[in-house]
Design a protein around this nucleic acid. Structure first.
Length: 413
DNA sequence: TCTGGGGTCCTTTTGCCC
DNA sequence: TCTGGGGCAAAAGGACCC
């Protein structure tokens, strides 16, 4: 494992190789698990360590969720259609995902972060920002803390992670990406520009295919090119917010702080059918199942929402959304479903081939303070009570028992 | 090569009110 | 009564992230 100019430390090398003061002011850590889903699968399949392993969504239409580095070496990457991955890498072991395992390991990892500092901002199951400025006296320098985290995660959870250490969130994020797998990279505060400017534009957090294309059209390829372009030009090409934001990032400026306890803004569920569907009754059934799933998640988190949105993706992959805002927030599946079906039926589809449907509830508020008023049904409290009872039964006997019963209980209007 | 499922944020359009 | 426009919220779409 090589040590790069900015202070990469390899797998087990100690943190004390850094010049004193190297990480001064670098109070933001970005910790990212390496090939998270695949690594968790290897815990159950140790015989596959060192071989190409690909975790892919179920069904014929799955995509790659995660792949070991042996598979990545052959060109496999996440979000790639599983069918293509199979062609690229026929010798790989394909495994179905086990989300409960990932959630359990993730909770363990987040608990380790929490023992370092309360200032933890999870971004997903497998990564988080930490602000360690309050932990320096107790635990050492930021890079020492990073190494402690790496060791503890490896010892307690059996998987490796990479840590970026920097003075801002987005540089920490880029740093962790550039020392993967199983590394740690410090970007000293006075070397941020040297770190950023040689990078390709597409490496920036927030630049995807479309934005990269737009910037290439302006003849810009590196972060230095971006930094040396008038901000007005970027605003015209990318929109006001994105243009200005990227220009700021190109100069290493990122005011965002680590925010623990970020509140969710929406909860939803969508499903891709195994084969395209043109029967409205089948779509309705899926809307019902999704409405029930969303409602029970809302109740489990004591949330309710006012805006119901549906998403419909057609066979040609064009996607539309429709939404309606209710007079009061709800966490009742029956209300969500009634709204979702009304939105879908209003599309007036004449047996169009539907690939995916989804239901999302937005405008979330604290569900415990919501006054439960009459909305779509004259007896909403009765329905809430019935659905709560179903929640409890599901807790006790498992989802499989209750869901079909609920499907029968709530007739199509 | 044929594209998941969970989200966030931003922009543009539209309808409404004054 | 007609017209214009500002301001606002909701709706819709799209880009992006993991």
């Amino acid at each position: 494992m090589t040590k790069q100019q900015l202070g990469r430390s390899g797998a087990r090398s100690p943190a004390q190789g850094y010049p004193r003061g190297d990480d001064a002011g670098c109070h933001v850590l970005h910790v990212d698990m390496d090939a998270f889903y695949a690594s968790v699968e290897l815990l159950r399949h140790p015989e596959l360590v060192g071989t190409p392993v690909i975790v892919a969504g179920g069904g014929t239409r799955g995509v790659v969720l995660s792949a070991t580095y042996e598979a990545r070496a052959l060109g496999v990457h996440s979000a790639m259609p599983a069918s293509r991955a199979r062609r690229l890498c026929p010798s790989a072991t394909f495994l179905a995902p086990h989300h409960d395992d990932y959630a359990r390991i993730s909770a363990g990892v987040m608990a380790i972060f929490g023992s370092v500092t309360p200032h933890v901002e999870p971004l997903s199951l497998d990564e988080a920002f930490l602000d360690v400025s309050g932990a320096l006296r107790r635990l050492g320098s930021p890079s020492q803390i990073g190494e402690q985290i790496r060791t503890t995660v490896q010892d307690e959870q059996g998987i490796t992670c990479s840590v970026g250490v920097a003075s801002t969130k987005f540089v920490a994020k880029l740093a962790s990406g550039r020392c993967k797998p199983d590394g740690l990279l410090v970007v000293p505060a006075d070397q941020v520009i040297e770190f950023l400017h040689p990078l390709q534009i597409g490496a920036l957090w927030g630049v995807g295919d479309k934005t990269e294309e737009a910037l290439h059209r302006l003849g810009l390829r590196t972060v230095a090119d971006l930094a040396n372009t008038p901000v007005g030009t970027l605003e015209r090409a990318l929109g006001h917010a994105a243009g200005r934001h990227l220009w700021q990032l190109a100069w290493g400026r990122d005011e965002r702080t680590v925010v623990p306890d970020v509140q969710e803004k929406s909860i939803g569920r969508d499903r891709t059918f195994e084969t395209d569907v043109d029967d409205p009754a089948v779509v309705h059934r899926e809307l019902l199942a999704s409405s029930q799933s969303v409602a029970s998640q809302l109740r489990a988190r004591a949330l309710a929402g006012r805006t119901i949105a549906i998403k419909v993706r057609f066979a040609d992959f064009t996607t539309i959304t429709r939404s309606r805002t209710l007079s009061h927030p709800t966490d009742v599946a029956r209300d969500i479903y009634a709204t979702a079906v009304a939105l879908f039926d209003a599309l007036g589809l004449d047996r169009a081939r539907v690939r995916l449907v989804g239901v999302r509830v937005e405008g979330l508020v604290d569900g415990s303070t919501v006054a439960h008023q009459l909305t779509l049904d004259e007896r909403p409290e009765a329905w809430r009570a019935a659905e709560r009872a179903a929640d409890q039964a599901a807790d006790r006997f498992g989802r499989g028992v209750v869901r079909p019963a609920s499907l029968v209980e709530i007739p199509d209007p």
